[in-house]
């Protein structure tokens, strides 16, 4: 995505082929070795019938036809898309906003910087449990406030839409810190010169942000959104703990669907669901990467 800053071709001596490979090789090797076997194995599983009794013959596209022919997968894909789009947008806005706030010269800035990171440091399943306590409006910490507004008896997690909103809020509580810290580091590495020049020209703070900060932060922004998107597609702890995917199938994400299929050791179908998700995520992220890259190229 960040290809707007073209790698400097020939900027350095061309005898660097060896060091070029040296830089990339360890990472390629490690990821390749650890992913090659699982990838082959899961492809094999996706075209097989594989259950508790072990391998039960090849079914080729049978698993895919079974999964895609059932409304369940489509329902969960829709729900997952809602989580991804709403959750990641909200987290980006909050995270970027807070990062801007924390680059200002404010008292206790360093305290806030660490405090705001804490939600990210809790293991996801524990965050989900903490959120379940907080969202319990009868015996949770917010009970008195909800009581005042008479909202205690609203079936918060018993209503599909409300439950989705709470799940997105819980996810946002946990992952806004990630965007915050990456954006903060990005802001802190921005060069000073463009600002100085613009201030001399009498630019307002808004103009500084819109014409300098925001465009310069676009590469980091697009990366951080991409990473969050890839992760958000795999959301599972929050729905499983808060609602188990219910009411009905209203809050069930595709990964939760895969997870519960895996729990039955129906490995063929799990792999098929995994590849369907892989296809969807690749489609969405490629669309996103291409759109954003054009936007970055046009904007600069």
């Amino acid at each position: 995505m960040s290809q707007h800053v073209k790698p400097k071709k020939g900027g350095f001596s061309s005898s660097e082929t060896r060091s070029k490979i040296f830089f990339l090789a360890p990472a390629l090797f490690l990821v390749f070795v650890l992913s090659i076997f699982p990838t082959i194995a899961s492809l094999f599983l996706a075209i097989s019938r594989y259950g508790p009794a072990g391998f039960g013959g090849f079914v080729w596209l049978g698993n895919f036809i079974d999964v895609l022919g059932n409304r369940h997968i489509w329902e969960t894909l829709g729900t997952t898309l809602i989580y991804v789009v709403c959750g990641v947008s909200l987290q980006y806005l909050l995270g970027f906003g807070l990062a801007l706030l924390l680059t200002q010269k404010l008292r206790f800035r360093r305290f806030f910087r660490v405090l705001f990171l804490i939600p990210m440091m809790i293991t996801p399943v524990a965050v989900a449990y903490i959120m379940r306590m907080v969202f319990d409006f009868r015996i949770g910490p917010l009970a008195p406030i909800m009581g005042i507004f008479g909202l205690q008896d609203v079936p918060w997690l018993g209503n599909g839409t409300l439950a989705k909103i709470l799940i997105i809020l819980g996810d946002t509580w946990q992952w806004t810190p990630f965007i915050l810290i990456v954006m903060l580091a990005g802001l802190e590495t921005l060069p000073h010169e463009p600002y100085e020049a613009a201030v001399v020209d009498g630019a307002t703070p808004w103009e500084l942000f819109w014409h300098i900060t925001f465009p310069m932060m676009l590469p980091v922004s697009s990366t951080v959104i991409l990473i969050r998107m890839v992760e958000a597609f795999k959301i599972v702890d929050m729905p499983i703990v808060l609602t188990g995917g219910g009411p009905g199938v209203a809050t069930e994400s595709t990964t939760l669907f895969a997870y519960s299929t895996w729990r039955s050791f129906n490995l063929g179908q799990v792999s098929a669901i995994g590849y369907i998700l892989l296809f969807t995520v690749t489609l969405v992220t490629t669309l996103y990467v291409n759109t954003v890259r054009r936007r970055i190229a046009g904007g600069m």
């Binding site: 076997f37 082959i40 194995a41 997870y259 690749t282 992220t285």
Partner: peptide, 27 residues
């Protein structure tokens, strides 16, 4: 090219973990 290598990296993170844990275990 560079962007393809970069995307290959990120694409390794897309499969849900439950799909890969059992092969990993065996490996």
């Amino acid at each position: 090219q560079n962007k393809d290598i970069a995307f290959w990296f990120i694409s390794q993170k897309i499969l849900p973990p439950v799909v890969v844990v059992i092969p990993l275990y065996v490996m």
